[in-house]
């Protein structure tokens, strides 16, 4: 690794650390005017401290909005390459893209393509998804032949039964409600809690400049 590259890595890690620290402090202090007591001007001070985070977040949203262009460029690049290798599907993708752009340029504001093409296709895909889910649901015990798999299937069946609008199945709805309110809710919170913990640990790693992105 050359000296220049090393400096580059150190610089990028430093920038990450500095921006992370500024954001954290700005979000913590700027969001809470109560920290500065009731003196006159405390609200202004909090507003001033919140400014860096505000500016940086706005920058991020602009960058994220523009990043769709990267995606589109990538999609075109990949499919042009595939077309060169003789893949016919890519021709359809590129032709559809061209047609959509042409349509929008010629008829600005007309979004009927979305309703006439996108919505039916995505609805059809959603129907296919239903079949996939059904197939997957019917072979859970083929994949996981254990007590947890059995429990999973039992809960799925119970929830589906309770969703049926049949008067005969009314008692099951009470079970379903309890199931959704207590164990399912607890499990969902546990999953989210775990992901939050992981997010903090990874965030600290990035904040300390130790993520692989900064290590060259």
């Amino acid at each position: 690794m050359g000296r220049g590259q090393r400096y580059g890595i150190a610089l990028s890690a430093f920038v990450a650390f500095a921006v992370g620290a500024v954001m954290t402090l700005s979000l913590l202090l700027g969001d809470n005017p109560a920290l500065f007591g009731d003196q006159p001007g405390s609200a202004q001070l909090a507003g001033l401290l919140a400014l860096p985070a505000d500016v940086l977040l706005r920058l991020v949203t602009i960058v994220v909005a523009l990043s769709i262009l990267i995606g589109i460029a990538n999609l075109l690049y990949v499919h042009v390459g595939r077309l060169a290798r003789g893949k016919a599907y890519s021709a359809i993708v590129l032709a559809s893209f061209g047609f959509t752009v042409y349509w929008y340029v010629m008829r600005p504001g007309d979004t009927s393509l979305l309703e006439a093409v996108q919505v039916p296709i995505e609805s059809a895909l959603a129907a296919l998804l239903c079949l996939s889910l059904l197939h997957g649901g019917s072979r859970v015990l083929g994949k996981r032949a254990d007590i947890w798999g059995l429990l999973f299937v039992a809960v799925v069946v119970l929830v589906l039964l309770a969703s049926l609008p049949l008067a005969e199945l009314a008692p099951i709805q009470a079970w379903r409600d309890w199931l959704m309110r207590v164990p399912v809710s607890a499990g969902a919170r546990a999953l989210l809690l775990g992901i939050a913990l992981g997010t903090v640990v990874t965030g600290v790693r990035a904040l300390l400049g130790q993520d692989r992105s900064f290590r060259g």
Binding site: G136, V140, L192, I195, L197, G198, T199, V201, T202
Partner: peptide, 25 residues
């Protein structure tokens, strides 16, 4: 998946599954 519906599908259908924070580990 970090989303609950995706995680349920993953558990039911994938050959192997990680759950929640196992993604980070």
């Amino acid at each position: 998946s970090d989303r609950l519906d995706g995680q349920a599908v993953a558990y039911a259908m994938a050959d192997e599954v990680l759950i929640g924070e196992e993604l980070f580990a």
